[in-house]
Structures are given as C-alpha cells and as structure tokens.
C-alpha cells in the first residue's frame, strides 16, 4: 500500500489560536478517505496546508510524495480541489469557470465535462452571480471530476446540494474510486462518510481522535429511534444496547447501538409497529457521547462545543 497523503504532528497557529495541534492523517493511494470533524475542528486548515496555501508551524506533511509547500505547483497539476465555500467571478459563466480551472490544472476531458453537466443538471451559460451556493459547488465539482487528477481533495462538497444531487455525487465518487484514484473527503455528516469511505479519520480541536475503517468505528454509531406500537413497548428498555429510554404519549424514544439493532427490531415487530422513525447520530452527538467526559476533564465547556453550528 502506498500513501497519497501522510501527515504527522501538524501544527498551525493563527495568532493566539491553535488551529492544528499535532494532527495526524494517513491516506492510502486508491482509497476514499473520510475526514470528519465538527465545524471549526481544523479540517479546512489541514486541507489548505496540504495545498500549500498555508505554511505549517510544525510537523511533517507529504502529499503524492512531495512537499506541499515547496512543490506546490507541480503537485497541483496532479490533484483537483473543491473548496468548502465556492466563490466564483460574478460576470463569468459557470462553463467558462469550469474551463478556466480545468485548463490551469492541465486540461479537461470535454466528453466527461458534458456528461457531468448533464448529470448534475447544471446550466453552464449562467453567470456566476445568478448561481446559488449549490450551483457554485457543482461548478467546482464538475471541474474537479472532469479532470484526470490522481487525487481529489473535497472540502465538504455536498453542503449546498439537494439529496438528489448528493446521490449523483456519491455515484461519481464511486466511479472515481473504481478508476483507482484517491479521494480525501471532508465532511461533518457521518452518513455521507458511511456511504462512501473506505476509512475515516475523525478530528476535533485540531487533533486526530480516531482513525480506521468504518467497521472498526462501528461502536461509535448509535441510532436514535421513536416508535409507536399497538401494545405497550415496556420490555424495550431491558434489551441489550438500548439507552436513554423515554415514554411519551404512547410512543417510546430511545438510542440503540448499531450492532444491537437487529434484536431490538425483532422485539418491536411482535408489538405491532404503527410508526417508526430512526435518525442516524450526528457527529456532534457522537463526540458528546464519547468524549464528553474527557472534554469536561480538560475544562472544555461541552454543551456549548456541541451546540455550535
């Protein structure tokens, strides 16, 4: 296994703020790697260091076998980047922006470009000033996906896309992986990472807290469920893996460990299910559950941290 990205002990400070505090990240060639963390945890800063836009204050980083700062221009020809908040030039059309970004990277496949415009349902004739956030993001995505870059660096690329377009995006990423290319995908949505990523790294406060395959991290995920049954669902609280059971108005709500899901559903089926909603945990909830105690010990105000947008 060769490494596309290798970062260890990365430090970056902005004035008094320590944005990256000894961050580690290993991305193998050919994998889709999820880069997860709540907003403000240092994902974008790490990516900008990897792109040579920011100069690190400490640590070691290697990208495609080169130094991100020193070899920036040469490395950029081999990667494609989609920023988290895509800003374009108001008077330049989406099609022109795609061609420009593509040409500066070393060329686009025109057939792929046309196909992607179709799939993302993007009108390339519109001036950027008339695009919504989602459409600006599509411009950057089409430019990145229509290139033959060996590494795609995507910073929360779906934050402005509707569910339909998110499905198209996931399809495209699977194709990219099938071609053997590498993807670094930052996100604060766990479900997106679950759908796409071979491995994930979870960071918070500029430090890597967990890294591995999703199966290894499975214990982190816990589903929230609200169930309405014909017969009282009294026994549910006693089942293994069920936490925080609450009764209200004929419904029960509880959290359940993902690996205990099967047993709980079997039990519920016998009670006559009238309605059921289940919500995957958000990353913030997950952090709160697993690191809340640790954070409280460090004196970090936990509730405020988790409630931040």
């Amino acid at each position: 296994m060769t490494t596309a990205i290798s970062v260890s002990g990365l430090v970056k400070t902005f004035g008094a703020t320590r944005a990256l505090d000894g961050l580690d990240l290993e991305v193998a060639t050919g994998e889709v790697h999820g880069f997860l963390g709540p907003n403000g945890s240092g994902k974008s800063t790490t990516i900008r260091v990897l792109l040579g836009l920011l100069r690190p204050d400490g640590g070691r980083s290697e990208l495609l076998g080169g130094d991100p700062w020193r070899d920036a221009v040469a490395l950029h020809r081999r990667l494609a980047y989609v920023p988290g908040d895509v800003t374009l030039w108001p008077s330049i059309s989406g099609g022109e922006a795609i061609d420009l970004i593509g040409a500066l990277r070393g060329g686009l496949d025109p057939r792929r470009r046309a196909e992607l415009l179709e799939r993302f349902d993007l009108d390339p004739r519109k001036k950027a000033r008339t695009y919504s956030k989602g459409n600006r993001q599509k411009v950057a995505l089409v430019a990145a996906l229509a290139s033959d870059a060996e590494l795609l660096v995507l910073d929360e690329p779906t934050s402005g896309l509707d569910p339909l377009m998110e499905a198209v995006f996931q399809e495209c990423i699977r194709e990219v992986r099938a071609e053997g290319r590498t993807v670094l995908l930052s996100s604060h949505i766990l479900a997106e990472a679950e759908a796409l990523c071979d491995r994930v790294s979870i960071i918070r406060l500029g430090r890597t807290v967990q890294s591995g395959t999703l199966a290894e991290l499975r214990h982190l995920t816990r589903m929230s469920m609200v169930v309405e049954t014909e017969r009282p669902a009294d026994g549910v609280g006693a089942l293994p893996g069920v936490h925080d059971l609450r009764h209200d108005d004929g419904r029960v709500s509880f959290d359940v460990d993902t690996d205990a899901l099967d047993g709980v559903l079997r039990h519920l089926a016998g009670l006559g299910v009238r309605g059921l909603t289940s919500t995957p945990p958000t990353l913030e909830e997950l952090f709160l559950r697993h690191y809340g105690d640790e954070l409280a010990e460090d004196g970090v105000p936990v509730a405020q941290e988790a409630g931040r947008p």
């Binding site: 330049i92 022109e96 061609d99 390339p124 004739r125 001036k127």
Partner: peptide, 23 residues
C-alpha cells in the same frame, strides 16, 4: 433577463493573465 454567458470559455480566458484582463 440577464444575457446568458458562454457555455465554454474562449481560448483567451484560459490563463491567469486572460482571467485578469477579463476581470
């Protein structure tokens, strides 16, 4: 209604200087 732009870029735009001149 705003006039639509070009669906593809002219060759002249496809460089940093080309973009700067346009801007």
């Amino acid at each position: 209604q705003p006039r639509p732009g070009r669906p593809t870029a002219r060759r002249g735009l496809l460089s940093p200087l080309g973009l700067a001149v346009r801007l």
